[in-house]
Simulated assay, not measured.
Amino acid sequence: MTTAIGIQWPEFNDGLTYNDVISPSSSGLTLINFYSSNYSSSAPLQGWLQRIHNGQITIDGDIVTDPDTVLRVGSKLVYHRLPWSEPETPFLLEVLYEDDDMIAINKPSGLQVLPGGLFQQRTVLTQLKWHANKNGNSSPGQLHPVPVHRLGRGTSGVLLCAKTKSAKARLAAYFADGTSLSLHPGQNALFGIAYGFTAFNNSVVVDKVLINKPIGIIRYPGVAKGLYVALPSGKPALSKVRVLERDLEKDQSLVQVEIQSGRPHQIRIHLSLIGYPLLDDPLYVAGGQPECFDSELVEEDFAEDG
């Protein structure tokens, strides 16, 4: 009988702080010029002005609300991002195995593994820390709950996590040399259910497919650092797909995918590239490209935090 761990998310997270030390090249810039030029992906000019006027930025510990304040070498800047309500996210984690060194969980779709973007608190890492603190079965110096590998936020599946620093080092070494999966160094094998593969390659059913297509980044609405897609100018990516089982009635197949390059979202991108995306993938469609949508940015419309 499996068990589940997880604590309901609070309405708001704790916010964030971002630290900078003024270098000689930035000396003489005004406060607004520094932030609007160095962190334009976080907010445009008007957004940074709003944050400064809100009193969210300190210089050497003092709140500064004048955007034209001139910066000096060595000054310590801190931007305080206000707490916000993160998007709705699952919080329960099904425990498949647990001992003193590691825990294997069934990560639900919609839950991010590590902090990033809008999701700073609502992550697997946060739930692992809360679970460890609640149990208190290790001394603070030994406690180090952390995922050993990653699964995309929209991907569900088995996630192996270490509970101590020593366990993390050993498990990471296993993944690096392929010991845990009897693979060659640098390879990883993952399993998923994909649409199709019941008739492929001119209606001839095949069991193995080799996908060797580069993956790169494009600008995409709502993703500050860009989105990974199949892109000729991207970095090399190789995936070996093997069909394990087929469900002809549902036109779905259980596949094993070995990846050597490990690009972000590689399996999702490569399977969708050849026309067989993962089941219920909310983003990637045939061709290895994202599902496009119209997005307009209204410059004058900013949240409370700019």
Rank of each mutant, 00 (worst) to 15 (best):
T89D: 11
L279E: 06
D301H: 11
S138A: 14
R263L: 08
I105M: 03
D280H: 15
C161W: 03
D301Y: 09
K129E: 10
L238E: 03
A104V: 15
S75I: 05
D20C: 13
W84V: 15
L93P: 03
L238T: 13
I274N: 01
Q46P: 00
D207P: 00
N38F: 11
I7R: 11
S166W: 08
G116H: 06
P277C: 10
G47I: 05
L92M: 15
N133A: 14
I63C: 11
Q252V: 02
D68C: 00
H184R: 15
Y79M: 05
V78P: 11
V64L: 08
W48G: 03
P147C: 05
E304A: 13
Q289A: 10
K250Q: 10
F91P: 06
N202K: 08
I269F: 03
Q56Y: 10
S156D: 12
W9L: 00
F293P: 07
A194E: 02
S26E: 15
S40C: 14
A173K: 15
F200M: 11
E11W: 04
G28N: 08
L231D: 12
F293G: 07
T3S: 15
R246S: 09
R242I: 06
G196L: 02
P214F: 09
T126L: 03
R51L: 02
G141H: 06
I105F: 06
N188Q: 14
W48T: 03
P221L: 12
Q56T: 09
L45Q: 10
L82R: 12
A194T: 06
T2L: 14
I22C: 09
R81M: 11
A4L: 11
S85P: 03
R170D: 08
G288N: 03
L181T: 15
V255P: 01
I52P: 01
V241L: 14
A162M: 06
D281I: 08
V206H: 01
G47H: 06
G28C: 11
E249F: 05
H270G: 02
N212L: 04
F91D: 05
Y220V: 11
L77H: 12
M1I: 03
R72A: 13
I274W: 01
D305F: 11
S42T: 14
G287F: 04
Q256A: 14
L77N: 11
V95E: 04
P282H: 09
F293H: 12
P87N: 05
D62T: 09
R72F: 08
P10I: 05
V64M: 06
Q46I: 11
G152L: 08
W130L: 15
E258G: 00
G74A: 14
V95G: 10
E94S: 13
S261M: 09
R170M: 07
T123W: 02
L210Q: 07
L183E: 08
A43E: 11
S139I: 09
A189F: 07
A4K: 13
L254R: 10
G141V: 00
I215Q: 02
S138L: 15
F197A: 05
E291D: 13
A237T: 02
R153G: 08
P24S: 09
H144F: 14
P236Q: 01
L93H: 11
V229N: 03
D62F: 12
V146P: 00
P10M: 05
G216H: 04
S26P: 00
L278Q: 09
W48V: 02
P87F: 09
Y79I: 01
